[in-house]
């Protein structure tokens, strides 16, 4: 009950935050040179028709008025406008592409967490050992390897040279039809429909891009796990527990690790939110039909409605992720009160 009330209040915060984000998006898109009408109309359309198109897109109005009308459309009709780069309603575009990005980023993050958290914890326990050094080198590499280079390298090795991975043709091979739409996540939908072949293909297509994403996401998570674990291990309550003669295993995992986890969760949330905002490079390299490619084209084409829609979506997902973060922090840390 308390949690529900807290969540509702937090979600209500979405309104002013989204308004602010939209306003910033509005101003930024309109300050940068270039407008979508020139792209859609091309040079051949008459001056009158161009003016009419501008009018229909409300681009002839003052920015303040455009903003108010846009917000009114979003609130009353759920209408985010029509994209100039795809010709489709922005809402459809986003709903279509979000699952692709969500599936990829989630797989990548799970992979990163499964490797990074134990690696960081072990590094902390065996500080300055060979394992710790290796872990630190890996973390530095993760931060410093350019992601497009890593993607291309993995493709070259595992697809072009060894033929272990499927070609980078997006989420499924071209001849496979998508599983019946339930969640939009192909792995889940294929599982629900019992299409094992499609499931296998969807997983195979996910491996290389997810690994690429995981390598870069791993680095900050490993580092924060290591440092906060070291801090916890050196803290007074651990020393007290040790002197009380508690078993080392219990001290490490029940007390130190649980305390160390809070900054780790915060870091995971930040990395996750960032990746959901469109993993542009990974999507570009692997021809992944997600939000990153969409956002890239929208920005290059000054596609105002699409850019605004993207910003609304990214802001919302950040807020939801941070809400989940706060709820899990409260579950782990009894000192945190949900008020």
């Amino acid at each position: 009950m308390r949690i529900a009330r807290y969540a509702t209040r937090r979600l209500a915060l979405l309104v002013p935050v989204l308004l602010g984000a939209t306003l910033v998006a509005f101003l930024l898109t309109r300050i940068v040179p270039g407008n979508p009408i020139d792209k859609v109309a091309g040079p051949y359309v008459s001056v009158e028709r161009r003016a009419q198109m501008k009018h229909e897109a409300r681009l002839d109005l003052p920015i303040a008025q455009q903003f108010v009308l846009y917000v009114a459309d979003v609130v009353t009709k759920g209408d985010l406008g029509v994209s100039y780069t795809t010709g489709q309603p922005v809402l459809n575009d986003l709903l279509q592409r979000f699952p692709a990005t969500f599936e990829l980023v989630t797989f990548g993050m799970v992979l990163a967490i499964l490797i990074a958290v134990p690696l960081g914890a072990v590094s902390a326990l065996r500080k300055d050992s060979l394992g710790d050094q290796v872990g630190r080198v890996l973390a530095v590499l993760g931060v410093s390897i350019p992601i497009f280079w890593l993607g291309l390298l993995l493709l070259y090795l595992f697809f072009f040279r060894l033929s272990w991975a499927p070609p980078p043709l997006g989420r499924l091979p071209p001849l496979t039809t998508s599983p019946p739409h339930v969640t939009g996540l192909f792995t889940v939908d294929a599982l629900l429909a019992g299409q094992w072949q499609t499931l296998g293909q969807a997983l195979a297509a996910l491996i290389l891009p997810a690994v690429t994403l995981a390598v870069t996401a791993m680095a900050p998570i490993t580092r924060i796990t290591r440092s906060s674990m070291i801090e916890a291990l050196e803290s007074e309550f651990v020393r007290a527990s040790t002197s009380l003669g508690l078993p080392w295993r219990t001290i490490v995992w029940r007390h130190a690790f649980r305390n160390a986890l809070i900054p780790v969760l915060t870091m995971i949330a930040a990395v996750y939110g960032f990746a959901l905002g469109g993993e542009v490079i990974v999507e570009y390299v692997f021809s992944w039909p997600g939000l990153g490619n969409y956002a890239l084209n929208a920005i290059l084409g000054s596609d105002f409605p699409a850019i605004q829609g993207m910003i609304l979506l990214v802001t919302t997902s950040y807020l939801v992720i941070y809400l989940l973060l706060d709820l899990s922090t409260a579950a782990i840390d009894p000192r945190v009160e949900l008020t």
Binding site: L155, F159, F160, P167, L169, P174, Y284, S287, N293
Partner: peptide, 20 residues
């Protein structure tokens, strides 16, 4: 099937391996 591949390097790779 017109398959959208944004990266020219991938288009090349895909043709040379016979994936397209």
């Amino acid at each position: 099937i017109m398959k959208i591949i944004s990266d020219p390097a991938q288009r090349e790779l895909l043709l040379r391996t016979g994936a397209v």
